[in-house]
Amino acid sequence: MTSETVRAGAAGTWLLGDLTVNRIGFGAMRLTGSAAFHQGTPRDRGQVIAVLRRAVDLGVNHIDTAAFYFSRLRSANELINSALAPYADDLVIATKVGPVRDACGEWTDRARPDQLRGQVEENLRQLGRDHLDVVNLRVMGQDSISEDFGALAELRDAGLVRHLGLSNARPAHLAQARAIAPVVCVQNRYGIDARGGAEMLRSCAAHDIAFVPFFAIAGAGREAGAVHTEHEQVLTVARTHGVSPSQIRLAWTLHQGKHVLAIPGTGNPDHLLDNLAAGALHLTEEELALLDSVDCTAS
């Protein structure tokens, strides 16, 4: 099977509440530039819009975004709106609230509970929607999220939000949130060389909650992208299959459980096809063991 023929559903589906999504989705952070946020050269607008439309054509029905994904000349939400509205009925758009950036792009604070409605409404305005499918509360170092998550639960009851999730959360945060309202997903950093979140991976599996790793491809490069030297174990398995290291990283991610979703992001049409192809890649037990041997102590 060539990458050109692989569709987003090749790895199967999962439920975000009552919403069925293909396990390979699309992360919108990198739509705004060649590196995260205000760094790097803005991508060609036409190319980015074409990549979004191609992704949906190939079955991507889960897009992860946020109003704070913007650079000097680009807004991820506005690009999604321009490319995909009017939205397909089965397209699930998940966004995040919590962090605060000023107009210059500086991170200034985290939103108070009474400010979260304004952030939800800003996402609605930018995306051109009357409700948000999934809103994730991005945890910003606080020990208790009960007040913040309670404010989002009120917006869910009011019909502005359909489902709720968490981002950058610990198991204690998940317990606090579940005591208030259902949680359909948790977005945490996790990957071949960043497995410190294994407890949350297991907690989500136990409660049938989607676990959505970020930086699965970037690894130690984080927001700047995959700038690190690749691990020899990843290169070895990639050579065996004749595919890119990125495909191996994504395939390993999907092999961590049926509840695990991938949200690789790109503004490059070739990288889009490469990412989707990971959903059809089978790794043997021996290959998984080799990849599991990657040293995570420096992550």
Rank of each mutant, 00 (worst) to 15 (best):
A158S: 13
A158N: 01
A158H: 07
G159D: 05
V161Y: 02
V161F: 02
R162T: 10
L164Q: 01
S167L: 05
N168L: 03
A169G: 00
P171A: 05
P171W: 08
A172Y: 02
H173E: 04
A175M: 08
A175H: 13
Q176H: 10
Q176N: 10
Q176S: 09
Q176E: 15
A177N: 04
R178S: 13
R178V: 08
I180F: 02
A181K: 01
A181C: 06
P182T: 02
V183R: 09
V186P: 05
N188Q: 06
R189L: 07
G197M: 03
E199I: 01
M200Q: 07
L201G: 00
L201R: 02
S203E: 13
A206V: 05
H207Q: 14
A210S: 14
A210C: 14
A210F: 09
A210Y: 14
V212L: 14
F215A: 11
F215K: 11
A216Q: 15
A216S: 15
I217C: 10
A218L: 13
R222Q: 15
A226H: 13
A226Q: 13
V227Q: 12
H231L: 11
E232Y: 02
L235N: 03
L235C: 06
R239T: 08
T240F: 07
T240Q: 15
T240S: 13
H241M: 11
V243Q: 10
S244R: 14
S244T: 15
S244N: 02
S246W: 03
S246K: 03
I248N: 02
R249Q: 12
R249W: 04
A251W: 12
A251C: 10
W252P: 08
W252L: 03
T253I: 04
L254M: 05
H259Q: 13
L261R: 03
L261S: 03
A262I: 10
A262P: 05
T266R: 07
G267C: 06
N268K: 08
N268C: 09
P269H: 03
H271V: 11
D274Q: 12
N275R: 05
A277Q: 13
A278Q: 09
L283E: 09
E285W: 00
L288S: 03
L290K: 08
D292S: 09
S293I: 05
V294I: 08
